[in-house]
């Protein structure tokens, strides 16, 4: 059951990316090019997604638990450590170079562009590297 539900939810997410135009890196790069060929569409994607999720989460999180799991797995950390600055800084540089973030890159895979086929395996290697570092014992916080 969980597998089928996840398949449908992933499909919905991907169709959202396609309809919104975000599976096209050119549209993302033009959003980031304020001083050039600016295309503000990405702000509308974020806006639409955040409004729906903000309202939807209010209702969902009032429940005792999810429909298919024992509890909600919500991030609990609130501190601003170096990883929350360094990680996004590195991610943003890659995003600005290729115009792909992880979701659109995976969604674009079946369209078979050479750039996508180069990007996705590299992205998975990068993810694996970060996970291996994450698995190492972390330095004790002062």
């Amino acid at each position: 059951m969980s597998i089928l539900i996840n398949l449908v939810i992933g499909l919905l997410f991907g169709v959202g990316l396609v309809i919104s135009g975000m599976s096209d890196p050119a549209k993302v790069l033009n959003f980031l090019d304020v001083f050039g060929t600016w295309d503000p569409s990405l702000a509308f994607v974020m806006g639409g997604a955040v409004i729906v999720a903000f309202i939807g989460y209010r209702f969902v999180l009032k429940r005792d638990k999810p429909l298919l799991a024992d509890r909600f797995h919500l991030p609990t950390r609130t501190d601003i450590d170096s990883r929350i600055l360094i990680g996004p800084a590195i991610f943003g540089i890659g995003w600005g170079l290729g115009g792909f973030c992880p979701g659109p890159a995976l969604t674009a895979l079946s369209l078979g562009a050479i750039g996508t086929l180069a990007f996705v395996p590299a992205m998975l290697i990068g993810m694996w590297g970060a996970r291996m570092i994450g698995a190492l014992p972390q330095p004790r916080r002062a």
Partner: peptide
């Protein structure tokens, strides 16, 4: 189209939380 597609992405996030209790 971007607003509508974004809303679908948001809906997907809400559904994943509702069913699995996880962040999309």
């Amino acid at each position: 189209a971007s607003l509508a597609g974004g809303a679908l992405i948001g809906l997907s996030a809400v559904l994943l939380m509702a069913f699995e209790g996880r962040i999309a």
